[in-house]
């Protein structure tokens, strides 16, 4: 049967949308602009998590190593150690958990410095994900927006938003819907790292706290949703995995850009879930 009418769905929510969904085990897929390069915003924390695990698998780092992160100089952000006021000492893997569960920028930048962004990019190329690149840390990403707009957050003036390098896939962390869902598929099939590390990554991604995007499309006790969001002015995304009670599982990546620059757009968040549900429903027919 023909693919669902994603264009109409996205436009009634006031956004443009791109997506890719695939049955993790059969490979059956559905896409809508699946190969368009798009900014990942915080979803870059997923490839960072994968490289972190691979270095742990290779013995290059010990995930239980404790690091002390001073209060001064921490990357800014609304959650995790970015939002905390005092010096913290945490293990590397607990930083990784905060980076995924609450999208903590402070934890992400500590790990990115430890792992190295070139290592992340080398890993992505080795996995065949040539459209996915990590160019910026969270702090660089936030600084660029302040520089481009000429003022600090919030960025709601359409002219400011139009200037942001953070929204230009050539100049910021980028991927495509297909490659984000492919990366999640590899994590769920134990291909991205060792089986033990993949299981730990799945558990961390399942602990993500946000219910308003991907998970909102599957409001059912017997359906599991794991994922990682990404947000920048007018950009709302989430990639993840939806697991059905019959054991079938689907990797889904949905990217949206809203026409309006308003920060609060619940419908734009929810359409990510609705589109994912339509895509999964399509794959199950």
């Amino acid at each position: 049967m023909s693919a669902p009418d994603f264009d109409t769905l996205f436009s009634t929510a006031g956004v443009r949308g791109w997506l890719h969904a695939a049955d993790i085990d059969s490979g059956r897929e559905v896409g809508h602009g699946a190969d368009v390069p798009l900014p990942t915003a915080s979803m870059f924390k997923v490839p960072l998590l994968v490289e972190f695990c691979r270095q742990a698998d290779a013995g290059l780092l010990d995930p239980s190593d404790r690091v002390t992160v001073p209060a001064a100089g921490r990357s800014s952000g609304p959650t995790g150690i970015s939002a905390m006021l005092d010096e913290v000492t945490l293990s590397l893997r607990d930083l990784a958990y905060l980076m995924i569960a609450v999208s903590d920028n402070g934890s992400a930048d500590v790990l990115l410095a430890r792992v190295g962004r070139e290592a992340v990019n080398t890993m992505l190329a080795a996995l065949g994900l040539h459209g996915t690149r990590v160019l910026q840390s969270c702090q660089e990403f936030n600084d660029s927006m302040r520089e481009d707009a000429g003022h600090p957050w919030p960025f709601v003036d359409p002219d400011d938003v139009a200037r942001l390098r953070a929204l230009d896939p050539e100049r910021t962390n980028r991927s495509t819907p297909r490659e984000m869902s492919a990366l999640f598929g590899m994590i769920w099939r134990d291909e991205a790292a060792s089986a033990e590390s993949c299981a730990w990554m799945r558990a961390a991604l399942n602990k993500q706290v946000w219910p308003h995007r991907l998970a909102s499309g599957f409001p059912y006790d017997d359906v599991a949703v794991s994922g990682k969001t990404g947000t920048a002015p007018t950009l709302r995304t989430e990639s993840g995995v939806v697991e059905y009670p019959d054991g079938r599982r689907y990797a889904v990546a949905v990217f949206t850009r809203s026409f309006s620059t308003a920060l609060n757009q619940p419908r734009a968040d929810a359409v990510i879930g609705t589109a994912a549900r339509m895509a999964v429903d399509h794959l199950r027919r």
Binding site: D221, D222, V225, E243, P245
Partner: peptide
């Protein structure tokens, strides 16, 4: 009879 699985989401407990 398949065992009933309840997916765990952080929001359920927060």
């Amino acid at each position: 009879v398949p065992a009933r699985r309840i997916s765990r989401r952080p929001g359920m407990l927060a």
